[in-house]
């Protein structure tokens, strides 16, 4: 997990309650997850994906996004969830990491939420460590819980394993 990486959220959180943070919410396998909006470039439909043989399992393939080649990463696989059976429209969240473009494949993209960072609670201690490594904490919404994803951690994984 990336303890050493102070993210934008950490920085903003210290600035007091007036500073609200906006999150793009997505769903995978029924779970609501949030991505800091300043990391999200765009949201698009992932069509015509080229699969890459021999790549690590998290990599779903390559996409052409307006003339740019984007590496698509399956959030389900990053969270060690089973692949979705129904193959409808696949939504992707466009992210950037070390100068490269990525598309994070999710089940659905929801609304944008404005939340007070002071309300962010740490991960429950018994959270699956594989999830905890990708999560910065949990927001309690009225009817459900929102896990805040650490974008850098999500995009950082060992590629050599698959080789």
């Amino acid at each position: 997990m990336s303890i050493s990486q102070p993210t934008n959220n950490d920085v903003t959180r210290t600035k007091g309650f007036a500073e609200m943070i906006e999150y793009v919410t997505v769903t995978v396998d029924g779970q609501l997850l949030g991505l800091a909006i300043d990391r999200v470039h765009d949201v698009f439909v992932a069509s015509e994906m080229t699969s890459v043989p021999l790549a690590s399992s998290e990599i779903a393939g390559l996409l052409n996004l307006r003339g740019r080649v984007v590496t698509a990463i399956s959030l389900r696989r990053r969270l060690h969830l089973a692949d979705r059976e129904a193959s409808g429209r696949r939504m992707a969240v466009g992210l950037e990491h070390s100068g490269e473009a990525y598309g994070l494949l999710v089940d659905e993209v929801g609304e944008v939420l404005k939340l007070n960072p002071e309300a962010l609670q740490p991960n429950p201690v018994h959270m699956d460590p594989r999830w905890a490594g990708l999560s910065q904490g949990v927001h309690q919404l009225q009817d459900r819980l929102l896990i805040i994803l650490d974008v850098d951690a999500v995009l950082q994984f060992d590629t050599q394993l698959a080789a």
Partner: peptide, 8 residues
């Protein structure tokens, strides 16, 4: 190639 795939 993306850095995630360069090892192939």
């Amino acid at each position: 190639m993306s850095s995630k795939l360069r090892h192939i």
